[in-house]
Amino acid sequence: MVTLDSVSRIYKNGESIVRALDQVSLKIGDGEFLSIAGPSGSGKTTMLNLIGCLDDFDEGELYIDGHPIGKMSAKERTAFRRNNLGFIFQSYNLIPVLSAFENVSFVLELLKMDQGAIKEQTYKILAEVGLSGLEERRPSELSGGQQQRVAIARALVKGPKLVLADEPTANLDSKTGEEILALMKAMNERRGTTFIFSTHDAMVMEYARRLVVLHDGSVVSDEQRGR
């Protein structure tokens, strides 16, 4: 699914050079439920941004589903994201003037699907994430957990093979956070979608079936978990 082959991301600030990711090699298979952990500045978000085709890397190569991302133009990467990737953000990033339904369906609008299919798929995914009956509510009329459920529905509605989540439970209380993780895991199992999420929360790490720990831009541990 995802292969990082000696990937480095280097930031230059005047004379100083920071290797946010340093020669990282990693293989992530289909259907994995993987957490990237590590302290602040360890390179978690940088790695997610690279896998999400949102940022450029300076060395190595990244393959997603066999596609060499480094060889793609910016336009091709936008199209690749649109067709293949889903994102969940820490602060949900829902559009406040749109209803839950519209926040989810807009992803399908980008794919220029017909309105009937958009309606059907959107209602279905909202039901799957437990938001039946709340489709017409705006984000301000939903709780934090419900908003993150809308964000999960938005990431999954087009049926991507890979979903990336940057600290998805950081803005939630522990009970709601656990519910969200349970939901993500259920979706992973039901749909076979690969989930990669970053965290520094021990409870979140507990949920991962594979835990990759970064420190100073390098992988310091990579272990399979039983749960």
Partner: peptide
């Protein structure tokens, strides 16, 4: 800016 970034991450083209 967050929403715009989200829409771009989701694959919305600059033209749109």
């Amino acid at each position: 800016s967050g929403e715009i970034a989200m829409m771009r991450a989701m694959g919305m083209e600059g033209g749109a």
